[in-house]
Structure formats: structure tokens, C-alpha cells
Amino acid sequence: MTSPALVSSSRLADLPPAVAASVWRGDDLAVPTGAVVSSGWAALDAELPGGGWPCGSLTEVLSPQPSLLEWRLLGQALRQVTADGGNVVLVGPPKPPFLPGLQALGLQARQLIWVQTETPAQRLWVTEQLVQADTAGAVLAWLPQARAEPLRRLQSRLQGGRTLCIALRPEGARSESSPAGLRLLAQTGPDWTLRVQVLKRRGPLHDQTLVLPSVPSSLEAVLSRRTRLPSRCLALPDGARHAVVRPVSAEPLRH
């Protein structure tokens, strides 16, 4: 008697190669049909189907609060997108983006567009319009309040397209169902790290937390060895209070 797994794999071999490639079995990582953009960390890429952020599929990034780690997590991928000539469109960011800091990430002024929106319905409408244009670029949409249906519409509009669309949502949305193909929870960790959990992907369940080193790129040049590990050097005893504020880094600033 043959095991079910063997039966299914032999049947898979009978299929034409193009069909077999699009069959995804739940116990291994899917191969996305569209392009992917590397996230910049080998450890994270290894956990994402296809080895990067998928284009032509909705990706949700949940974080405890807005404007906490967006550029640190996505910067490498966006640099890649703009290097290939794509534009980065921001829909309703929580605070105005600051260009000098984004330039340190490798983004150029002429490739950055900020769409200011007021209501959740406007954000969704704008995102949908951008996604529908299907340009080879990135759309970053802050969607703190969005129900599943509009997101599903977004996902179906994206399907088979070239746009890298990332929805940035609060951690509270974790318990809601989501039509996104990929869902991550990202938090900040001590000593310039990001802690990333893959909540949903086309692949086996991922139950570990990835710890990714990530120094904001404009700080890369100015951090010293000590300030790269602030938790070790700067742990202040709770009672200690300084009368005068002084630089906690004992080293002089390197320029």
C-alpha cells in the first residue's frame, strides 16, 4: 500500500510542468508566480515564499504603533525598487516623511510621492487606484482601519500585477482575518534589532521570531561600538538620576 504523499507526488509528476509548478502543497513554501524583491536579510528571505517581498500580491506588516520601523524593515527592498526605476508612493503615512533621512536609504526625491488622505475610505480608494495602474513600483499604504472586504478587493486587483504593495497595519489587526498573501508582525528589539514573526504565508506555519540586525541607515556612520549595543553600556540603574544631562556615549562623536 502506498502512502497518500507518494500518490500525490506521483500524480504531480504526471501533470504538465507548467501546471505542476503552480500546484502548491501546504507543507512546503510556495513559489510565487510574480517577481519578488529581496528584503535584504538572508534570514528573512529564507522564510518568505520565493525569497523576498512578493509583487502582485498584498503583503501586510503589523506593528505595535505607526511610524516605528517601516523604513528600517522595508528600506532595502525599496532601494531595490527605485534602483530598477520604480516609484515609491506613500498613502497616508502617519507623519510627514523626511527626505534627508530617506536619501540615506537610497531613495531619490523624484521617485517619492506622498498622497495625503483624510478618511479610511480615501486611503483605500487611493491605494486601489494606484494598484490598478499596475506600474513597476512600490505602494506603501497605512491602513489602520480596513475591513476584510476592501482588502480582498485590493488583493484581487493586485493579483498577477507588478506592483509591490505593502499595507501597514496596527498589531490589533492580528486577530482579524486577512486576505493578504503574506502577513508579518514586526517589533523593535533591543540593540538596533527588529523582531519579525511571519503570521501567514503560503507555506508551513512559522512559529519562531526572527531577530534581524537593523541600524537606521543615517545612523550607520555615526554609531560607535558602544552605542551599537546600548542595552549593554547604557543600562541605567532605575534609581540613578543625573543632575546634568550629559552624553551617554563617552566617546567623542565621529564625523
Binding site: 503615512p93 507623519k95 510627514p96 516623511p97 536609504l105 543615517s218 555615526v222
Partner: peptide, 13 residues
């Protein structure tokens, strides 16, 4: 001008 100095990515209005 801004090279080598810390520059944030979001600026409060």
C-alpha cells in the same frame, strides 16, 4: 550637508 549627521525618516509637522 546632511551627510554623516543623523537624519530621521519621519519628521513631525
Amino acid at each position: 550637508r546632511s551627510e554623516g549627521l543623523p537624519q530621521p525618516t519621519f519628521l513631525l509637522p
